[in-house]
Design a protein around this nucleic acid. Sequence first.
DNA 1: ATAATAATAGTCAATATTAGTCAAAGTTGG
DNA 2: CCAACTTTGACTAATATTGACTATTATTAT
Lengths: 155, 155
Amino acid sequence: MQNRNISDIIEKYLKSILADSQQIEIKRSEIAEQFDVVPSQINYVIKTRFTIQNGYVVESKRGGGGYIRIAKVNLIDDTDVLDQLIDLIGESITSGKALQIIQSLYEDKLLTQKEANLVLATMDRTTLNFADKRLENVVRARILVSVLNRLRCAD
Amino acid sequence: MQNRNISDIIEKYLKSILADSQQIEIKRSEIAEQFDVVPSQINYVIKTRFTIQNGYVVESKRGGGGYIRIAKVNLIDDTDVLDQLIDLIGESITSGKALQIIQSLYEDKLLTQKEANLVLATMDRTTLNFADKRLENVVRARILVSVLNRLRCAD
DNA sequence: ATAATAATAGTCAATATTAGTCAAAGTTGG
DNA sequence: CCAACTTTGACTAATATTGACTATTATTAT
């Protein structure tokens, strides 16, 4: 619980700010300096932890006065996001990315914890356990899309 | 009785820590070094002694700052039903039989209606949609067994 | 206005740091 | 001796870190 990697720490820091405000605007170099990492690590953190799968939308601008803006999006009032997710999943998805999506659904209260755990169990790496991982990802995508579509129903 | 094997000793050590806390996070290499065994032996200990049947859920992460987390979970009172169902399913199950099992779980109040519908969606014929139905039934069995094992947890 | 320069952020691939899998070899109790 | 369990290690997979190079935007000089 103590010696997490620096990416996790940066993630946590950013999310703690986002807990209070709908969005934040950071200067990449400042955050990098603050945590003593190379600037591109900030891109890594964003790319792995602040994607639309995670329920975030990121915009940025380069040049003088450049910034990276991270905004939280809500899956509940935004049916478009559900469509976006399905679109994004496409034909194939890894176990890790699927986990991110399920976590987002839980955070946005579209799934209870038990529901999330059950759904996760169905598409876990060790559950599907295909020799051909490419095919496994295809099947996982079908399962996840099926779950997302099911969530459109009222009950 | 005195000189038990090293796997038993590692098991006992981990469980002694878990007696005080709900979960622990270990670094595989550290534990391996501490007991002077190869790292993969830690996996063996976990796989044989920290199963869901024993009331443990294990998560891990690789890469820098990686860890293995072992958490205690509360098991439901009657796991016999689950054991029997898992036995019944075996290696393969059709969509129809799976539906029957999910329905019975709903009637036994092990699943809410929404949970049942979600789980059904994941293993529906149109979701899995394998060309090779024999293989589809095998995968469905793995999914359903995984769900049943998840249901052992009270929370 | 245009060109040069400065100030940002982005990409990508090499390397490092973990954990997981699997099967062969060893051990032990019956 | 046999079957089940344990130990080992080579190979694989996932994740994180780093830095050189690129792209974009703003500012300054001409």
